[in-house]
């Protein structure tokens, strides 16, 4: 699990468009570099980021080696009903970072 930061409202009115902004600590090693002995450094990037809201997928993106370290991803969604948002980051090492935030809809 990497350190993450998620900034979003805790409450929203039904039908409101809310912005969710996320950061995750990750080196985003491109796979194009070599170490001091000339050996290629294997690629290790966060390649997929998905978000589900009350079980339904509301956001998914793929990331590529051109993305800088500690990727910042922001997106919007519509507040439909009170429920959990589950954020999942997957990287090349097979590490999975999962965070959950509650959104209360009034």
């Amino acid at each position: 699990m990497s350190t993450t930061r998620i900034v979003m409202p805790e409450t929203a009115r039904k039908g409101e468009v809310i912005e969710i902004r996320t950061l995750i600590r990750h080196e985003m090693e491109t796979g194009h570099r070599r170490d001091h002995t000339g050996k290629p450094v294997p690629r290790d990037i966060v390649h997929t980021f998905t978000v589900t809201y009350a079980g339904d997928e509301v956001f998914r993106t793929e990331l590529f080696p051109g993305v800088a370290a500690n990727p910042y991803i922001a997106f919007t969604t519509v507040a439909v009903a009170t429920g959990d948002l589950e954020f999942t980051w997957l990287d090349d090492q097979g590490r999975r970072t999962v965070e959950t935030r509650r959104l209360s809809v009034t």
């Binding site: 930061r5 600590r25 500690n70 910042y72």
Partner: peptide, 13 residues
Amino acid sequence: DEAANPAYLWLED
């Protein structure tokens, strides 16, 4: 921008 400034990841730690 405190949501985008990556330094705040270290604050979480």
